[in-house]
Design a protein around this nucleic acid. Structure first.
Lengths: 194, 194, 194, 194
DNA sequence: GATGAATGAGCATTCATTCAT
DNA sequence: CATGAATGAATGCTCATTCAT
């Protein structure tokens, strides 16, 4: 019984992600999540308050996981090239390991908008981005990284990986993104190499 | 009267795009489009048959415009570098000139899926992509363009621009993508430069 | 067909009043009204927008009817006593002739509160009351009617009738209020007789 | 501990009355009462069994208080006029001293209907009314009080006060009913004065 | 081609109540 | 006596779509 208690919330989240993957967020009904999670409607509302909040929780959870993994790879990097590739690797690894969560995040940023978590997450993301820029700053200063407008670094470094991830996760491309780990990281580096 | 006829359909499309931009596709109701277009519900169904069809028409229309522009730029290119940059420029120009359409296309690929137009568009897109690959083929053969798996070219060349376009169109970045026309084209080229 | 069109709205109102009488406003569900009126849910919402609005429409309609009748009786009165009794008679006649509407109005003033019609009705009622006070004014000035604080006249004149109407309409008293027409009018007059 | 016990139940009743006053009985949820009373849901159900029972308890409590006060005033009366005015005074005093309870009782008679306490209370009220009629009986017999149908006495004597109390308690009249103690008592007497 | 009243399946959400701890 | 997570029936309302005029 003690174990079931703690899992109930997670069971709902798991069921929700599966439904979102299968039918899309908008097309997923509370009833679908209920059936899949074996929780009662009341229980779902007891834990999350409303449908959007389930999606928002999932969204934040996913980003936090990715951020953590990104951080751990970036810490080990000692050169500009290693840093840039760490960003690319972290993204590719995470997408390949968590395709459902990645697909959910990539295709449902809008679910966050209407949500109370939105601002909190926005702030967290901003801070995260600032930290990464700070990490690269010395290299830019030393000319070991190309100097471009700050708001462009993310798109240059992760653009190709984001794009291919979308292709793969939506079924328009067949090959697991992991197979292109090196090519994509190399491309990332080439865009900001001095 | 002949003019009114043609306009009525376009008025509906314009109103629909405005609604989609403002509220998102799923949240837009037939009633909203009706109010904005000053058409009657019956008229909308006469012209389009159902709601999805309006979105699909808009979607195809937008892609066709972009494709046409892309084609016209690519025709003039005489080197691999010019070709790659033509792809980037075409995308950036189109996004900057048609932000609403671009936003609609970027954020609503899924609306197409359920639609009859889906297969036709898929085929058109595939053919378009094949043509572009064919254009690049000689350069790859001559070693004037890096050889990578075919399904990667698109992501490498347009990934960064796609990514920044999303940032800008969703309000997460402030600067008009047009300002980064050169940087993004340069980045595109760097990813496939031999 | 032309006849059905106009009646649909009234059919819904009639069904609603019957349901409200039978189960009370809060306990009446949209489904009950739908079943009784043979209209579709959509039709009900097309005409009224929401459940409260049905009740509010009924409420205003009832008051307007009573006001009209009151006015017509008051017009004929030529003495203070006749005027006072006209008010009492108008109320008693209307309650006896429209017990369901009267019950609905007496027991559901609160449904108005949350409604857009509230302010409009409030204003209308205020104006109505002002007119009646104006009618009595000369008699008060001439000492043919007792002078009491303005906000008390209504309670003095109609209090007893209101009270008995509640008793009768809720089943706590058996005798039709019409039977006490004269006694109640006499009582009304006695409270303000100089 | 004995004190806490008794208080807990009263705390719930107090919180409930406050909620009923603020939102109305139907709109008040168990959750609202729980939050305001700082009791747990389980505790509320332990003490009262269900939501209606809370309202019913409050209702009976209020009537008992009023009855007691009425009795104490009526005991001292020695003439018909004093008796009639005692009824009026008792009501006015109680309303002015307990506006929330009075409002609750005036506007929620229907909550009692569905309740087990209903019959008991009905009987108690009937007995109370019978006693009062008995008190007046000798005066009627002696012609010191007007003879009217029995079921009318209550409305004649308290109608005006009831009516004004409703006006005041619902915010439609500004002046504390206490200010009209004498006028209303005088009016009550005038309706049954021989 | 145009109109808009009518339709009704489908959905998110609420809330009184239960009961294991 | 107290607690609060869990339950699920019930409800108001939305909205794409139809069709008679």
């Amino acid at each position: 019984m003690t174990t079931t208690k703690k899992n109930r919330k997670q069971e709902i989240l798991d069921a929700a992600l599966a439904c979102f993957t299968e039918h899309g967020v908008e097309a997923t009904t509370i009833e679908m999540i209920r059936e899949r999670s074996q929780a009662s409607v009341g229980s779902m509302y007891h834990h999350f308050g409303n449908k959007e909040s389930i999606a928002a929780t999932l969204y934040v959870e996913a980003l936090v996981e990715h951020h953590a993994w990104q951080q751990s790879l970036l810490e080990k990097a000692r050169t500009a090239e290693d840093g840039v590739k760490a960003i690319a690797f972290a993204y590719i690894d995470w997408v390949s390991a968590n395709p459902d969560k990645a697909r959910f995040v990539l295709y449902n940023r809008s679910v966050l908008a209407k949500t109370p978590q939105a601002d909190e997450l926005k702030e967290r993301t901003r801070k995260q981005y600032t930290e990464i820029l700070a990490w690269f700053q010395p290299y830019v200063a030393r000319g070991e990284l190309k100097k471009v407008p700050q708001e462009l670094y993310a798109s240059l470094i992760t653009g190709a990986a984001h794009d291919y991830a979308r292709m793969w996760l939506s079924g328009r491309a067949r090959t697991d993104i992991k197979a292109y780990r090196e090519v994509l990281a190399e491309a990332a580096w080439s865009t900001v190499k001095p």
